[in-house]
Design a binder for these strands. Structure first.
Lengths: 187, 187
DNA sequence: GTCTATATCTTGATAGAC
DNA sequence: GTCTATCAAGATATAGAC
């Protein structure tokens, strides 16, 4: 009498491995997170990790997908851009189901080639483009780029470097203090 | 008839190794920069690198010292804080003799334990404290921390991730667009 | 001071038993 | 599907000749 079919067990292993990988990649980055450590944390055999994902790069890619579209920004009016972008950031890092994946991507985005490419092309460039689309006047692209840079700086300080008191500040305080900052770039 | 004494040759090797190390650490980070590659780039034997610096950590520490004090910020008036901090950043990354060392530190500050500690304690915290000392009113520390976060974001986007058009913007444009941004935090 | 040779360790990845 | 055993490659670091 089997309570777990083969497919169920496979799926269970896979999610356990993915969760462990996200956590380790987020903590120590791509290079220092070993397949063995991921397997140990997921309570499976190291060879099983390879069986499921093929190689470490593929595991990393599966574990670090950026949560996605900048819908909040695209829906915003020029005046609500700053608030929308902040909501976007906070949602990705503090509310998303796979929020560890966002930290994992950022953790390695300075030292891992494909992580850097994803970070630049899919995160920063897209955000920059979404913002630039709402701007009028001179230097729209550059202002949008600086906007994206400030957002990245905030994310790094709060979630990666954990600089205090930025790391423990309330979402309300961040909105209150950062919105005027970002609005200096959008108007 | 010796034109190079032992001390001279030693000094010459050491500076060549340091320059090569700075360059490689800046390019690919601590993990992916191997002693062998550093030695090859400096045209010396790998064992010589060990002889001079003992181990890879010590080499990294020697190659990545942050250029130093935030004198410009400490000398600034509250009103010139933003301009002073920008000058400080631009000087560290575009004019300092060992400017590669600043990139090297930043490159690894998310994945290397001591690089992260240096970045947080000696770069961000000090900058935050220097800024906070000039601020009055509510949330001085948090505002100074967000100030430091924006500066880090700008540095990462411009020098590490090379997001365009931020990476190629002129110093004048950066001052013109970023000063109002930072001033939203200092007044 | 510099280099050759190598010890030692750790990694990602594979082969095959069960 | 899972695990045991192992490989091959690459790393840091060391010992000793010159």
């Amino acid at each position: 009498m089997y309570v777990t079919s083969r497919d169920e067990r496979r799926h269970r292993s896979e999610t356990a491995i993915l969760a462990a990988a996200r956590e380790l990649f987020a903590e120590v980055g791509f290079e220092r997170a070993t397949i063995r450590a991921v397997a140990a944390q997921a309570n499976v055999d190291p060879a099983l990790v390879m069986q499921h994902f093929g190689n470490k790069e593929a595991l990393f890619a599966a574990a670090t997908q950026w949560p996605g579209e900048h819908q909040r920004i695209l829906d915003a009016t020029p005046d609500s851009l700053a608030a929308a972008a902040l909501d976007d950031l906070l949602a990705h890092f503090e509310e998303a189901d796979d929020r560890g994946g966002a930290v994992a991507l950022m953790r390695s985005c300075l030292t891992h080639p494909t992580a850097m490419q994803v970070m630049r092309d899919q995160v920063m460039c897209e955000r920059q483009a979404a913002v630039a689309g709402k701007l009028t006047g001179e230097d729209a692209e550059l202002r949008a780029g600086l906007f994206a840079a400030c957002m990245v700086g905030l994310g790094m300080a709060r979630y990666l470097i954990r600089l205090e008191p930025v790391a423990s500040a309330s979402q309300e305080d961040l909105h209150r203090l950062m919105e005027p900052v970002l609005k200096a770039l959008t108007e």
